[in-house]
Nucleic acid binder design. Sequence first.
DNA 1: GAGTGGTCTAGACCACAAT
DNA 2: TTGTGGTCTAGACCACTCC
Lengths: 246, 246
Amino acid sequence: MRRTPISDAPLGYRPLYLQVRESVLGRLIEGSWPPGALLPSEHQLASELGVSQGTVRKALDSLAAEHLLVRRQGRGTFVAEVEEGNIVFQFFRLTPDEGERNLPESKVTNISKVTADLAARRALELMPRTFIWRIERTRYVAERATILERIVISTERFPALDRLIPLPTKNLYALYAHRFGVRVGRVEERLKAVAASARDGRALGCAKGTPLLAIERIAYSIDGSRIEWRQSRCLTDAFHYYAELR
Amino acid sequence: MRRTPISDAPLGYRPLYLQVRESVLGRLIEGSWPPGALLPSEHQLASELGVSQGTVRKALDSLAAEHLLVRRQGRGTFVAEVEEGNIVFQFFRLTPDEGERNLPESKVTNISKVTADLAARRALELMPRTFIWRIERTRYVAERATILERIVISTERFPALDRLIPLPTKNLYALYAHRFGVRVGRVEERLKAVAASARDGRALGCAKGTPLLAIERIAYSIDGSRIEWRQSRCLTDAFHYYAELR
DNA sequence: GAGTGGTCTAGACCACAAT
DNA sequence: TTGTGGTCTAGACCACTCC
């Protein structure tokens, strides 16, 4: 962890704290600090890396801002848990118009291992002839079918997923993290309004043609690679998708 | 700008940099630094306020993180412009499936001054018997009607708006900022899928019942008060609403 | 009381932009 | 060359948690 030498070409200049950040992030990616782990104190990290405490602080602060670390005054810095408090809703923006928000239960209606078709390969940047898990779920709110999900993940990253059946009904990302060491750091979502197909209508108990909110999601690992492709269709008569922009 | 005195009750403790932040934010709110203005340097502010440069830095950094200030190394710290670069899209998440993103042109179809009904009063937290502007617009993308907007703002905050007709076709928020000193700092959006009414269908050139993306937005001033209530209905056959969560 | 993160200071040097 | 923000350091003190 030495500063890049000053030369005629300071183009390769990188601030020290970013180097520290990448060092810590690297250890998060390789999994040597699992979720919930206590990191060394700022002073310890500083002396290990040969920088000052303030520089370590700036690196840890930036990782905490992305919810990868949790700082607790008086206790220490921890690797963020996937299932913690309000962070559970970090990637779930569907909110009831009235009442408390809750992660809805789900029932898997189909799970199969197939070769990735073109759409799946594009979505997850997979090579030809790789295999994927294709999971279909129905999510229930107040015992009413409300969301249909089609989830695609590669079998390479998630081998022997079928041995973990029944899958958790609420939070798949906790499973990814704890059983496969794969941590979702960021998701992109693209929303459209679509008409329910006859099949959608049967599954959701609504008429064919009913407007549904279609959400297409790509989930990214903290190392930047694509983890999961998820297509959802939601009844929004009693729900909405909430976004805050600033 | 003095530190709160240390006592038996440090409950009223507020970090110095937050006091500095509020002092600067206060001047932004009262408008003594208009958009584009150059702020005093960190050193100047520090000596004015009787704190160290590092403390001022922390305050300015937090305001820059919310896009209220723009920091330019070598030049200074500026009040953010409303129409600047990619920040134009800060509050506009509708993106074409293919091709470049653009702020769509709009045509005002209706503008009137009426007493606020209950829904408008709730949305904007207005007292009974206050007046509002009600604006209806159609937005066009590639010359095709794509978005219907119903905008509600109070006449108290935006007096004599009718003298500014024709309104700008792209960015209303720049008008709010430059002509009325009202700066949008944050918006909340709630999305649903709805069926096009017969009237929607005529305006958008689609069949009654076509699924539309309905967006309900509340825009907040940087002082936290509610500025604008906007209801949009969008055709999403060639567009999507983009969100990134982290 | 010991240890942690959080704040604050003072001063040095660097990268960048304008002069 | 000057002035700005950006980084880095070293050290002090504060607030919080746990023993």
